[in-house]
């Protein structure tokens, strides 16, 4: 007989069930059922205690239907539960999305009154935003162009994102859910190389590029790159 399609392994992090990615889904379910049943009978004599399992699917992506089927199997048993189901592979869609989020997008267009440009990830903005235009990004916004509209970083609610650059002519700056209206009282705080961020009190604040390490120590790691020497 062929090797079991569902194999239990103990690791230092806990129990792990590995589902053979070469076996058919049907085989996996039969063999998983068998495994759970035998575990159930073994544990009947020991103290009742919930054990959670990591399930690895190898190079197979389970459909959400099959995932919930597996989750249900565990839910039906008294003492077992699924910690998480993970796979070595992702869909193209997901990978595109990850790329999109990790990329710095370079924009050099004019965002006119009433237009709204939404970007996943960071933006290097070289264009112009007219009064009434909006640039919205889930990541950071680096501005080299001229901003007379609204710039919003960290959408929908990432307050660790920043807006860097001279935006003193903007109507508003927004980060996550925080916003500030720019008028005579605060435009003086913004120059070339100003960093706009959300401080510990959840209020928009202004700093210099030199201060980024203090404000957000992780900022430089996330950009990555190879440094020689």
């Amino acid at each position: 007989m062929q090797e079991d399609a569902a194999v239990l392994r103990g690791t230092k992090d806990g129990y792990r069930i590995i589902l053979d990615d070469q076996a058919s889904v049907k085989e996996i379910f039969t063999s998983l059922k068998k495994l759970l049943d035998s575990l159930q009978s073994q544990s009947e004599f020991s103290k009742p205690k919930t054990i959670s399992f990591d399930i690895k699917t190898g190079s197979r992506l389970l459909s959400s239907e099959n995932r919930s089927k597996i989750e249900k199997m565990f839910a039906d048993s008294k003492s077992f539960q699924v910690h998480k189901i993970s796979s070595d592979v992702i869909t193209k869609e997901k990978s595109d999305q990850l790329l999109e989020e990790g990329n710095i997008h370079i924009l050099d267009n004019i965002i006119r009154n009433g237009q709204q440009v939404e970007i996943q990830g960071d933006v290097l903005f070289l264009g112009k935003i007219h009064e009434g235009g909006k640039l919205i990004a889930s990541g950071n916004i680096f501005v080299f162009g001229e901003v007379k509209g609204i710039v919003q970083a960290g959408v929908p609610n990432f307050e660790n994102k920043m807006i860097i650059g001279d935006v003193h002519t903007a109507q508003q700056v927004r980060i996550g859910e925080q916003f500030e209206i720019l008028d005579d009282t605060n435009t003086g705080k913004i120059h070339d190389g100003t960093v706009i961020y959300v401080n510990d009190l959840h209020v928009i604040d202004y700093a210099k590029v030199e201060d980024i390490k203090e404000i957000n120590p992780k900022f430089f790691n996330q950009i990555g790159g190879i440094v020689n020497g």
Binding site: G114, E131, G132, Q171, Q172, F179, I181, L182, D183
Partner: peptide, 17 residues
């Protein structure tokens, strides 16, 4: 809607949330 101006005439355009 779509071509708002009243805010500009009043000088309130940067205060719209």
């Amino acid at each position: 809607i779509g071509l708002r101006n009243l805010d500009v005439v009043l000088g309130l355009d940067n205060r719209i949330i």
